[in-house]
Structure formats: C-alpha cells, structure tokens
C-alpha cells in the first residue's frame, strides 16, 4: 500500500492505495466519483477523460500514485455552459460517454485557445486556430460515442465556443 494525496475538484483526499490502482479506479472505487466512466480500460474510447491541471488525460492509463498534488477535475467538478448545450443539442443518448466528451471538449478548447494545431489545421504558422467543424471533429476523435451523437456534440461545442456556424 502506498499513501497518496489526491486533489479532486478542489478537495484533498488522503488515500492508502495498492500501487496498481489506476487514477480511474481510484476515482470510481475509492472516492465514489462514478461520473468518470470505464469503457475499455485501455485508452481507446475516451470515456474516462478527466482534466489534470487543465489538460485532458485518459484516467484508465494513469496510475493514481503518479497524480499526487495535481489538480484533478472530474465531471462532478465541472459547472460549465457546455453541459446545458449538450442537453439542448442532444449531444448524447445513453449518457455513458458524456462525462468524457464534456471533459475532453473543455480540455480541447483550452488547447485551441493556446494555438495548438491539429492534423487538419491548414496554416500551422498562424498563431490562432479557427475552430471549424473539421477541427472539432478531428480533436474530439479520441472520444467514442456508439449511440452516434456526434452531430449534437459538435453543435454543443461550436455553440459554447461562441463560433458562428
């Protein structure tokens, strides 16, 4: 057992953990924060996406003991107009990928804000990236939605980012 201090949604937790425990399982099984979902446990579906110091990661591929002292934000700690936008645009059906989509989108918008290019960015030298639908889709492609709510998710992100369509 290893002692680890996890700071989640602004609250510090001291946990005694098996060093094999993933950040995802620490959240779900040890802190009762089940809003973060387990879809594949191998980094392929994005359902477990959380924000660490504002950057998006897949919590299933992270060991909890490596995240002591970092600022972890899960869906339970998110209060953002994007959530209402998802409801308005019907950006989900079953809801199981939704927490990951929302956290991923928030991380993604910060990346765009910082001028990080993607595989579909046309002008890499430009300091600002235009958030086209193609950019949104490319950058959100690590988050699978088997219900196929992709159109609604793209609409929600575009609306919230304040980009005219």
């Amino acid at each position: 057992m290893v002692e680890v201090q996890l700071r989640v949604n602004g609250t510090a937790h001291r946990l005694e953990l098996d060093p094999r425990v993933s950040l995802l399982d620490a959240l779900r099984e040890h802190l009762g924060l089940t809003g973060t979902k387990k879809g594949c446990n191998q980094g392929a579906c994005g359902a477990c996406t959380v924000l660490v110091d504002g950057e998006r990661i897949t919590a299933c591929l992270a060991l909890a003991v490596q995240y002591g002292g970092r600022e972890i934000t899960t869906i339970e700690g998110v209060a953002h107009p994007l959530q209402q936008a998802f409801v308005r645009t019907d950006g989900f059906q079953c809801g199981y990928c939704t927490s990951g989509q929302i956290c991923s989108a928030l991380g993604m918008l910060a990346e765009v804000e910082a001028g990080a290019p993607s595989a579909v960015t046309e002008h890499l030298a430009e300091p600002a990236v235009a958030l086209t639908d193609a950019e949104i889709r490319e950058r959100m492609s690590g988050n699978l939605c088997r219900c196929g709510a992709y159109n609604g998710i793209t609409d929600a992100i575009r609306e919230t980012a304040g980009v005219p369509s």
Binding site: C40, Q42, A44, E138
Partner: peptide, 15 residues
C-alpha cells in the same frame, strides 16, 4: 478491443 475493432469516431461522421 476498441483499439482494433474500428467503430466510427467524430472525424468519420459528417453533418
């Protein structure tokens, strides 16, 4: 697994 069985992702789906 979802890494080897390829379901559509955001970039595969137009409006």
């Amino acid at each position: 697994g979802l890494g080897e069985y390829h379901v559509p992702v955001h970039a595969d789906v137009p409006a």
